[in-house]
Protein backbone atom coordinates (compact mmCIF):
# COMPACT_ATOMS: atom_id res chain seq x y z
CA UNK A 1 0.00 0.00 0.00
CA UNK A 2 1.76 3.14 -1.17
CA UNK A 3 0.87 6.44 0.36
CA UNK A 4 0.98 9.21 -2.17
CA UNK A 5 1.97 12.70 -1.04
CA UNK A 6 -0.88 15.12 -1.26
CA UNK A 7 -0.70 17.57 -4.13
CA UNK A 8 -3.81 19.45 -3.16
CA UNK A 9 -3.38 23.20 -3.17
CA UNK A 10 -4.32 25.37 -0.25
CA UNK A 11 -7.93 26.60 -0.34
CA UNK A 12 -8.36 29.28 -2.95
CA UNK A 13 -5.36 28.21 -4.96
CA UNK A 14 -6.25 25.69 -7.60
CA UNK A 15 -3.51 24.37 -9.78
CA UNK A 16 -4.24 25.26 -13.39
CA UNK A 17 -3.77 21.74 -14.69
CA UNK A 18 -6.18 20.49 -12.03
CA UNK A 19 -8.70 23.10 -13.08
CA UNK A 20 -8.38 22.10 -16.72
CA UNK A 21 -8.93 18.52 -15.68
CA UNK A 22 -12.21 19.51 -13.98
CA UNK A 23 -13.33 20.96 -17.27
CA UNK A 24 -12.34 17.88 -19.25
CA UNK A 25 -14.08 15.51 -16.83
CA UNK A 26 -17.27 17.59 -16.59
CA UNK A 27 -17.45 17.98 -20.33
CA UNK A 28 -16.87 14.26 -20.84
CA UNK A 29 -19.83 13.55 -18.56
CA UNK A 30 -22.03 16.10 -20.32
CA UNK A 31 -21.22 14.98 -23.85
CA UNK A 32 -21.58 11.31 -22.91
CA UNK A 33 -24.96 11.97 -21.31
CA UNK A 34 -26.13 13.91 -24.36
CA UNK A 35 -25.05 11.02 -26.52
CA UNK A 36 -26.91 8.58 -24.29
CA UNK A 37 -30.04 10.73 -24.53
CA UNK A 38 -29.84 10.56 -28.33
CA UNK A 39 -29.14 6.85 -28.23
CA UNK A 40 -32.16 6.37 -25.98
CA UNK A 41 -34.36 8.07 -28.55
CA UNK A 42 -32.86 5.78 -31.20
CA UNK A 43 -33.84 2.72 -29.19
CA UNK A 44 -30.27 1.63 -28.54
CA UNK A 45 -30.75 1.72 -24.75
CA UNK A 46 -33.04 -1.06 -23.64
CA UNK A 47 -33.91 0.04 -20.12
CA UNK A 48 -33.78 3.13 -17.96
CA UNK A 49 -31.35 5.98 -18.51
CA UNK A 50 -30.90 8.49 -15.67
CA UNK A 51 -28.63 11.32 -16.76
CA UNK A 52 -26.35 13.41 -14.59
CA UNK A 53 -26.72 16.58 -16.65
CA UNK A 54 -26.41 19.66 -14.45
CA UNK A 55 -24.63 17.91 -11.58
CA UNK A 56 -21.22 17.32 -13.18
CA UNK A 57 -19.26 19.59 -10.83
CA UNK A 58 -19.84 17.25 -7.89
CA UNK A 59 -18.45 14.05 -9.39
CA UNK A 60 -15.55 15.96 -10.94
CA UNK A 61 -14.70 17.93 -7.80
CA UNK A 62 -14.85 14.95 -5.44
CA UNK A 63 -13.22 12.31 -7.63
CA UNK A 64 -10.27 14.61 -8.35
CA UNK A 65 -9.09 13.70 -4.85
CA UNK A 66 -9.54 9.96 -5.20
CA UNK A 67 -7.06 7.26 -6.13
CA UNK A 68 -7.95 4.07 -7.96
CA UNK A 69 -7.83 2.19 -4.65
CA UNK A 70 -10.42 4.46 -3.04
CA UNK A 71 -13.92 3.03 -3.24
CA UNK A 72 -16.90 4.84 -4.75
CA UNK A 73 -20.46 3.63 -4.24
CA UNK A 74 -23.19 5.38 -6.07
CA UNK A 75 -26.83 5.55 -6.84
CA UNK A 76 -29.17 5.17 -9.82
CA UNK A 77 -27.97 8.52 -11.20
CA UNK A 78 -24.40 7.31 -11.35
CA UNK A 79 -23.07 7.75 -14.88
CA UNK A 80 -21.14 10.84 -13.82
CA UNK A 81 -19.53 9.12 -10.86
CA UNK A 82 -18.41 6.20 -12.99
CA UNK A 83 -16.89 8.49 -15.61
CA UNK A 84 -15.21 10.73 -13.04
CA UNK A 85 -13.77 7.68 -11.29
CA UNK A 86 -12.24 6.60 -14.55
CA UNK A 87 -14.65 4.35 -16.42
CA UNK A 88 -14.04 5.10 -20.13
CA UNK A 89 -17.09 6.52 -21.93
CA UNK A 90 -17.10 3.60 -24.32
CA UNK A 91 -17.53 1.10 -21.46
CA UNK A 92 -20.39 3.16 -20.03
CA UNK A 93 -22.18 3.53 -23.35
CA UNK A 94 -21.61 -0.14 -24.18
CA UNK A 95 -23.14 -1.07 -20.83
CA UNK A 96 -26.30 0.89 -21.55
CA UNK A 97 -26.38 -0.71 -24.99
CA UNK A 98 -26.31 -4.10 -23.21
CA UNK A 99 -23.05 -5.22 -24.78
CA UNK A 100 -20.37 -7.61 -23.57
CA UNK A 101 -17.83 -4.77 -23.54
CA UNK A 102 -19.85 -2.74 -21.04
CA UNK A 103 -18.36 -2.02 -17.63
CA UNK A 104 -20.76 -4.59 -16.12
CA UNK A 105 -20.53 -6.91 -19.13
CA UNK A 106 -24.14 -6.19 -19.96
CA UNK A 107 -25.50 -7.36 -16.61
CA UNK A 108 -26.34 -3.94 -15.24
CA UNK A 109 -27.38 -1.15 -17.57
CA UNK A 110 -27.76 2.43 -16.35
CA UNK A 111 -28.26 1.59 -12.68
CA UNK A 112 -25.62 -1.10 -12.03
CA UNK A 113 -22.19 0.15 -13.05
CA UNK A 114 -19.20 -1.80 -11.78
CA UNK A 115 -15.49 -1.27 -12.37
CA UNK A 116 -13.93 -2.48 -9.12
CA UNK A 117 -10.43 -2.56 -10.62
CA UNK A 118 -10.49 1.25 -10.48
CA UNK A 119 -12.56 1.53 -7.31
CA UNK A 120 -15.96 1.96 -8.94
CA UNK A 121 -17.66 -0.47 -6.60
CA UNK A 122 -21.10 -0.22 -8.05
CA UNK A 123 -24.14 1.91 -8.54
CA UNK A 124 -27.51 0.75 -7.33
CA UNK A 125 -31.13 0.78 -8.39
CA UNK A 126 -32.13 1.05 -4.74
CA UNK A 127 -31.79 4.38 -2.95
CA UNK A 128 -29.69 4.18 0.22
CA UNK A 129 -27.50 1.06 0.22
CA UNK A 130 -24.51 2.94 -1.23
CA UNK A 131 -24.34 4.87 2.04
CA UNK A 132 -23.97 1.66 4.03
CA UNK A 133 -21.55 0.03 1.61
CA UNK A 134 -19.26 3.06 1.56
CA UNK A 135 -19.31 2.87 5.36
CA UNK A 136 -18.28 -0.77 5.06
CA UNK A 137 -15.44 0.12 2.71
CA UNK A 138 -14.30 2.58 5.34
CA UNK A 139 -14.45 -0.24 7.87
CA UNK A 140 -12.23 -2.42 5.69
CA UNK A 141 -9.75 0.37 5.03
CA UNK A 142 -9.45 1.14 8.72
CA UNK A 143 -9.13 -2.55 9.66
CA UNK A 144 -6.51 -3.12 6.96
CA UNK A 145 -4.49 -0.11 8.22
CA UNK A 146 -4.59 1.79 4.95
CA UNK A 147 -5.28 5.44 4.17
CA UNK A 148 -7.91 4.60 1.57
CA UNK A 149 -11.34 6.20 1.75
CA UNK A 150 -14.89 5.15 0.93
CA UNK A 151 -17.21 7.60 -0.81
CA UNK A 152 -20.98 7.45 -1.13
CA UNK A 153 -22.78 9.61 -3.68
CA UNK A 154 -26.53 9.85 -3.17
CA UNK A 155 -29.37 12.25 -3.79
CA UNK A 156 -31.65 14.17 -1.48
CA UNK A 157 -34.05 11.25 -1.84
CA UNK A 158 -31.71 9.11 0.26
CA UNK A 159 -31.46 11.33 3.30
CA UNK A 160 -34.97 10.58 4.56
CA UNK A 161 -34.20 6.88 4.35
CA UNK A 162 -33.07 4.78 7.28
CA UNK A 163 -29.84 3.87 5.53
CA UNK A 164 -28.71 7.48 5.83
CA UNK A 165 -29.36 7.57 9.57
CA UNK A 166 -27.83 4.18 10.28
CA UNK A 167 -24.85 4.60 7.97
CA UNK A 168 -23.81 8.01 9.22
CA UNK A 169 -24.20 6.93 12.82
CA UNK A 170 -22.09 3.80 12.29
CA UNK A 171 -19.39 5.72 10.43
CA UNK A 172 -19.30 8.23 13.25
CA UNK A 173 -19.07 5.81 16.16
CA UNK A 174 -16.34 3.83 14.38
CA UNK A 175 -14.65 7.04 13.12
CA UNK A 176 -14.42 5.61 9.62
CA UNK A 177 -12.70 7.19 6.60
CA UNK A 178 -15.83 7.94 4.60
CA UNK A 179 -17.26 10.85 2.59
CA UNK A 180 -21.01 11.12 2.39
CA UNK A 181 -21.77 13.26 -0.64
CA UNK A 182 -25.39 14.31 -0.87
CA UNK A 183 -26.27 15.70 -4.29
CA UNK A 184 -29.31 17.71 -3.33
CA UNK A 185 -30.92 18.22 -6.73
CA UNK A 186 -34.19 19.27 -5.07
CA UNK A 187 -36.33 16.37 -6.22
CA UNK A 188 -36.58 12.67 -5.42
CA UNK A 189 -37.94 11.67 -8.81
CA UNK A 190 -40.70 14.29 -8.65
CA UNK A 191 -41.20 14.73 -4.92
CA UNK A 192 -39.80 18.08 -3.86
CA UNK A 193 -37.22 17.87 -1.08
CA UNK A 194 -38.66 21.03 0.47
CA UNK A 195 -41.86 19.02 0.99
CA UNK A 196 -40.27 15.69 1.91
CA UNK A 197 -37.82 16.82 4.60
CA UNK A 198 -38.72 18.02 8.10
CA UNK A 199 -35.30 19.65 8.11
CA UNK A 200 -34.27 20.40 4.53
CA UNK A 201 -30.79 21.58 5.59
CA UNK A 202 -28.89 18.35 4.91
CA UNK A 203 -25.50 19.77 5.88
CA UNK A 204 -26.85 20.55 9.34
CA UNK A 205 -27.63 16.89 9.87
CA UNK A 206 -23.92 16.12 10.20
CA UNK A 207 -23.95 17.44 13.73
CA UNK A 208 -26.78 15.04 14.58
CA UNK A 209 -24.28 12.21 14.03
CA UNK A 210 -21.23 13.93 15.48
CA UNK A 211 -19.47 14.65 12.21
CA UNK A 212 -18.69 17.79 10.21
CA UNK A 213 -21.48 18.72 7.82
CA UNK A 214 -21.02 21.26 5.04
CA UNK A 215 -23.53 22.79 2.66
CA UNK A 216 -22.13 24.21 -0.53
CA UNK A 217 -22.88 25.30 -4.06
CA UNK A 218 -22.77 22.03 -5.93
CA UNK A 219 -22.59 23.77 -9.28
CA UNK A 220 -19.27 25.39 -8.35
CA UNK A 221 -16.59 22.83 -9.05
CA UNK A 222 -13.96 24.80 -7.19
CA UNK A 223 -16.09 24.90 -4.06
CA UNK A 224 -16.78 21.18 -4.30
CA UNK A 225 -13.13 20.42 -4.91
CA UNK A 226 -12.00 22.40 -1.89
CA UNK A 227 -14.60 21.01 0.49
CA UNK A 228 -13.99 17.45 -0.69
CA UNK A 229 -10.25 17.98 -0.37
CA UNK A 230 -10.59 18.85 3.30
CA UNK A 231 -12.90 15.90 3.91
CA UNK A 232 -10.68 13.40 2.10
CA UNK A 233 -7.57 14.65 3.91
CA UNK A 234 -9.35 14.34 7.25
CA UNK A 235 -10.52 10.83 6.44
CA UNK A 236 -7.07 9.68 5.30
CA UNK A 237 -5.54 11.09 8.47
CA UNK A 238 -7.92 9.13 10.71
CA UNK A 239 -10.20 12.07 11.45
CA UNK A 240 -13.38 10.26 10.53
CA UNK A 241 -16.30 10.89 8.19
CA UNK A 242 -17.74 14.07 6.68
CA UNK A 243 -21.12 14.90 5.23
CA UNK A 244 -21.14 17.20 2.20
CA UNK A 245 -24.41 18.62 0.92
CA UNK A 246 -23.94 19.86 -2.63
CA UNK A 247 -26.90 21.94 -3.79
CA UNK A 248 -27.52 21.29 -7.45
CA UNK A 249 -30.20 20.57 -10.02
CA UNK A 250 -30.97 17.94 -12.60
CA UNK A 251 -31.94 19.82 -15.72
CA UNK A 252 -33.20 16.83 -17.72
CA UNK A 253 -36.11 14.57 -16.78
CA UNK A 254 -35.69 12.00 -13.97
CA UNK A 255 -35.16 9.41 -16.68
CA UNK A 256 -34.95 9.74 -20.43
CA UNK A 257 -38.32 9.43 -22.08
CA UNK A 258 -40.23 10.36 -18.93
CA UNK A 259 -42.64 13.25 -18.94
CA UNK A 260 -41.02 16.11 -17.08
CA UNK A 261 -44.06 18.14 -16.16
CA UNK A 262 -46.34 18.75 -13.23
CA UNK A 263 -43.83 19.07 -10.45
CA UNK A 264 -41.55 21.94 -11.43
CA UNK A 265 -41.79 25.05 -13.59
CA UNK A 266 -39.88 25.90 -16.72
CA UNK A 267 -38.82 29.12 -14.99
CA UNK A 268 -37.18 27.09 -12.25
CA UNK A 269 -35.38 24.88 -14.75
CA UNK A 270 -34.20 27.93 -16.68
CA UNK A 271 -32.99 29.60 -13.50
CA UNK A 272 -30.80 26.60 -12.74
CA UNK A 273 -29.64 26.24 -16.32
CA UNK A 274 -28.24 29.76 -15.96
CA UNK A 275 -26.09 28.29 -13.16
CA UNK A 276 -24.72 25.58 -15.39
CA UNK A 277 -21.60 24.16 -13.73
CA UNK A 278 -19.69 23.67 -16.96
CA UNK A 279 -20.32 27.19 -18.22
CA UNK A 280 -19.26 28.50 -14.81
CA UNK A 281 -16.10 26.42 -14.88
CA UNK A 282 -15.31 27.71 -18.36
CA UNK A 283 -15.70 31.30 -17.19
CA UNK A 284 -13.54 30.56 -14.17
CA UNK A 285 -10.80 29.09 -16.35
CA UNK A 286 -10.81 32.05 -18.72
CA UNK A 287 -11.03 34.76 -16.07
CA UNK A 288 -9.37 33.40 -12.93
CA UNK A 289 -6.89 30.96 -14.39
CA UNK A 290 -6.08 33.00 -17.53
CA UNK A 291 -6.47 29.93 -19.70
CA UNK A 292 -6.44 30.64 -23.43
CA UNK A 293 -9.73 29.95 -25.15
CA UNK A 294 -7.88 27.76 -27.65
CA UNK A 295 -6.91 25.40 -24.85
CA UNK A 296 -10.59 24.96 -23.92
CA UNK A 297 -11.58 24.48 -27.53
CA UNK A 298 -8.96 21.78 -27.83
CA UNK A 299 -10.44 19.99 -24.80
CA UNK A 300 -13.94 20.37 -26.26
CA UNK A 301 -12.82 18.85 -29.57
CA UNK A 302 -10.98 16.00 -27.86
CA UNK A 303 -13.96 15.15 -25.67
CA UNK A 304 -16.33 15.14 -28.61
CA UNK A 305 -13.99 12.83 -30.53
CA UNK A 306 -13.79 10.48 -27.54
CA UNK A 307 -17.56 10.34 -27.13
CA UNK A 308 -18.23 9.88 -30.84
CA UNK A 309 -15.74 7.02 -30.99
CA UNK A 310 -17.17 5.58 -27.78
CA UNK A 311 -20.66 5.43 -29.26
CA UNK A 312 -19.35 3.73 -32.38
CA UNK A 313 -17.40 1.25 -30.26
CA UNK A 314 -20.51 0.45 -28.23
CA UNK A 315 -22.73 0.07 -31.27
CA UNK A 316 -20.25 -2.32 -32.88
CA UNK A 317 -19.63 -4.33 -29.73
CA UNK A 318 -20.79 -7.93 -29.41
CA UNK A 319 -23.76 -9.00 -27.35
CA UNK A 320 -23.03 -11.14 -24.29
CA UNK A 321 -23.35 -14.85 -24.94
CA UNK A 322 -26.68 -16.16 -23.64
CA UNK A 323 -24.83 -19.15 -22.23
CA UNK A 324 -23.15 -16.82 -19.71
CA UNK A 325 -26.43 -15.63 -18.17
CA UNK A 326 -26.02 -17.76 -15.03
CA UNK A 327 -22.30 -17.27 -14.49
CA UNK A 328 -20.99 -15.61 -11.32
CA UNK A 329 -24.05 -16.25 -9.15
CA UNK A 330 -21.56 -17.86 -6.77
CA UNK A 331 -17.83 -17.39 -6.38
CA UNK A 332 -16.92 -20.88 -7.52
CA UNK A 333 -17.00 -21.57 -11.23
CA UNK A 334 -19.43 -23.93 -12.91
CA UNK A 335 -22.37 -23.62 -10.56
CA UNK A 336 -25.49 -25.23 -11.99
CA UNK A 337 -28.25 -22.79 -12.90
CA UNK A 338 -30.32 -24.12 -10.01
CA UNK A 339 -29.55 -26.44 -7.21
Amino acid sequence: MSVQPTTDPAPGQIDRSAALEFYRVMLTIRRTEEQLARSHQQGLIHGACHTYVGQEAIAAGVCAHLRPDDAVFSTHRGHGHALAKGVPPRELIAELFGRATGCSRGRGGSMHLFAPEIGMMGTSGIVGPCILQATGAGYSFQLLKTDRVGVAFFGDGAVNNGAFHEGLNLASICRLPVLFVCENNQYATEIAFAYAAGNPQVGMRGSAYGMPGVTLDGNDVVAVYQAAGEAVARARAGGGPTLLECRTYRTRAHAEGMRDVGYRTQEEVDRWKAQDPIARCRTYLLQKQAVAVEALEQIEADVQTTVTEAERFARNSPWPEATTACQHVYSEPAQPASH
Binding site: L132, A137, S140
Partner: peptide, 8 residues
Protein backbone atom coordinates in the same frame (compact mmCIF):
# COMPACT_ATOMS: atom_id res chain seq x y z
CA UNK B 1 -25.22 -3.07 4.63
CA UNK B 2 -21.94 -1.93 6.14
CA UNK B 3 -20.65 -5.49 6.27
CA UNK B 4 -21.66 -6.05 2.63
CA UNK B 5 -19.50 -3.06 1.73
CA UNK B 6 -16.67 -4.36 3.88
CA UNK B 7 -16.86 -7.80 2.26
CA UNK B 8 -16.50 -6.16 -1.17
Amino acid sequence: GMCAGAAM
